[in-house]
Amino acid sequence: MRSALSALELLEPRSLSHALALLRDAAPVVPLAGGTDVYVLLNAGTPSGTRYLNLQRLDGLRGIARRNGVISIGALTTFAEIRRSALLARRLPSLVAAAREVGAVQVQNRATIGGNVANGSPAGDSLPVLAASDAVVVLRSADGVRRVPFDGFYTGYRQTVMRPDELIVAFEVPPVPGRQWFRKVGTRAAQTISKVVLAAVRAPEPRVAFGSVAPTVVRARRTESVLASGGTLNEAAAALMTEIAPIDDLRSTAEYRRRVAANLLRQFWTETA
């Protein structure tokens, strides 16, 4: 542990309104959900702050429910809970598939979907699924609620429209028409960060969202319209190349990511034909 623990402060709100008040009044405060990203930074000695807001007691932020056809997933829902959800298995199987591949079981027991999205890594495995399913991010502050379409949530590498006094409270997912498809490509079979990840939907209006190939998750609209208008797979892959901007990093190369992104697109399209 490279961070000084004695310098840290943990705020323990008992209700959502208490938490939101603390966020407003005690800034800067770092929300703490499952801690699986927060603790990695603490261990490395690069913490995001010294004052943390423990969300664990905010039970209102947990759970998966369906209201008026829309599925609401609380921000504190863990990937283990997502894996076990019968509702999601029926309605949003690609989120279940993604949850199954986050880290491994121990991490899934702690890691929350809200943390995955708020952390904002372009390799976050739930992000392409939320992007492809036209999810809405429900944000709350002491001032009230706002709903942001997932596609507009990120503004740049690890940048979001969320304000420091806001929390993600839930994600709302409208019905997804068509067949869902998900595949993660990491450096090994488990405990791995994505090198390329694709969540897609086969429908008259196909949806394609990639992770790990640009500073943010990419909803590949041009690729989608080529596919929707009956273009060939080669044309779709060519369109995709204009929409992604992968880089060389510790885990892979830009060239690999480009090729595999195109291959995944082909695999998705062939398998869902």
């Binding site: 090994r188 488990a190 791995t192 510790l250 885990r251």
Partner: peptide
């Protein structure tokens, strides 16, 4: 198959078990 020490300017750039991939039981 998996284990690659990425050296950049003489420094192991992936000096973490996240990015230096030893096989898990699933591999």
């Amino acid at each position: 198959l998996l284990e690659e020490v990425v050296m950049r300017d003489g420094r192991m750039a992936n000096a973490q078990l996240t990015n230096y991939a030893v096989p898990t039981t699933m591999d």
